[in-house]
């Protein structure tokens, strides 16, 4: 796809998302808010998996922790201050990523997958088995964070349309920020590390440092997603830290197309829509197909990975070919 075409498609998508609240019902606005939050989460993981070549199976640790930070930052039954609690949540997730990263980045390949999983599970059981934050029952976020600047509120997250636009703005911001990052010297280094880390070292790069910074950045962004997920859902449970969550977001990245930001976004949207689509299937001949949606989902993912090795994004390559045909015929 040419550069200008990509930009055009992206702007069209952004416009469509911006217009959605005009005609969509509350349910769909909230659904799309959730999808955009997961898209931020998926992009943060794609930075590790698709660009740096670090397959993490513990990314939910940073997502879930930020939700708990929000729950803790709010005084009981009251709202937290957005301008304080969001940076705090992202900083905590980033700090956790730093601590975990210092250890896990000494490994690679299958061992990296295992130790990221192990660290995330440790955190899961910390929240699950102790009473520090409601244990297995989880903890409520009673009110959405308040975005007051000296008494003036530019928007209120209690309003689902406002919430939607805040998340949309963050999605666009994170996307643009990561695009900038990937074009920078730092971005070129992390891609070099994915392609040939050993050669990067002999070229003089201390690859460990770059991977660590990348890991912290991805953790903090996952924290941003986790914060808004908790705010939207109004509830945080250890499940948000679980390996199901880590696996789910990894699936989104793979389904959409690793190594491209738009692939990660597409994967997040696609996965959630498919899930809903399969769940909504009717009862046929006494068998409730919708109830067994996970079976269909699994089948779909197998097919997608086999037929579209570069993810859903590679479907886009068919579009120009169809359109070009008549032109070729005319020549």
């Amino acid at each position: 796809m040419s550069h200008s075409r990509t930009t055009f498609v992206l702007l069209a998508c952004l416009l469509a998302l911006a217009l959605l609240p005009l005609f969509a019902e509350k349910y769909y606005i909230q659904l799309f808010t959730k999808m955009m939050i997961m898209a931020i989460f998926a992009m943060s993981l794609d930075l590790l998996v698709g660009f740096t070549g670090l397959v993490s199976l513990g990314h939910a640790a940073f997502f879930g922790l930020a939700g708990y930070v929000l729950a803790y930052a709010a005084p009981q039954y009251q709202a937290a201050d957005l301008w304080l609690s969001l940076p705090l949540a992202m900083a905590c997730s980033g700090l956790l990523a730093l601590v975990i990263g210092v250890f896990v980045l000494r490994t690679s390949g299958i061992y990296f997958i295992m130790v990221t999983l192990a660290f995330a599970q440790m955190l899961f059981f910390l929240f699950h088995d102790t009473k520090i934050a409601g244990g297995a029952d989880g903890i409520y976020v009673y009110a959405k964070p308040v975005a007051a600047i000296a008494g003036w509120e530019p928007f209120t997250l209690e309003n689902h349309v406002h919430f939607y636009f805040v998340v949309l703005a963050l999605l666009a911001l994170v996307y643009a920020g990561l695009r900038m990052l990937l074009a920078s010297p730092f971005g070129r280094v992390i891609v070099g590390i994915r392609v040939n880390e050993q050669r990067m070292r002999t070229l003089g790069y201390r690859t460990y440092r770059y991977k660590l910074v990348c890991f912290v950045l991805a953790g903090a962004l996952a924290g941003m997603a986790g914060y808004f997920a908790a705010a939207q859902f109004g509830f945080v449970s250890p499940e948000t830290l679980s390996w199901h969550q880590s696996g789910g977001v990894l699936m989104m990245v793979i389904l959409g197309g690793m190594g491209t930001l738009s692939g990660a976004v597409l994967g997040a949207f696609g996965m959630i829509l498919l899930e809903l689509g399969f769940q909504g299937l009717p009862v046929v001949g006494g068998m409730d197909i919708g109830k067994h949606w996970q079976l269909l989902m699994g089948g779909f993912i197998v097919c997608a990975v086999l037929l579209l090795p570069h993810g859903l994004l590679s479907l886009g390559r068919f579009a120009p070919r169809w359109r070009r045909k008549p032109v070729e015929a005319a020549e």
Binding site: M180, L181, A183, S184, P185, F186, G187, R188, V189, G192, M200, L203, G204, Y205, R209, Y210, V213
Partner: peptide, 21 residues
């Protein structure tokens, strides 16, 4: 280019495009 970039004092540069160096 990535080889030559290694001679920058640091590649922890996140904003300016790599091609602008």
């Amino acid at each position: 280019r990535i080889a030559a970039q290694s001679r920058l004092p640091s590649s922890m540069r996140f904003i300016r495009p790599a091609l602008a160096y």
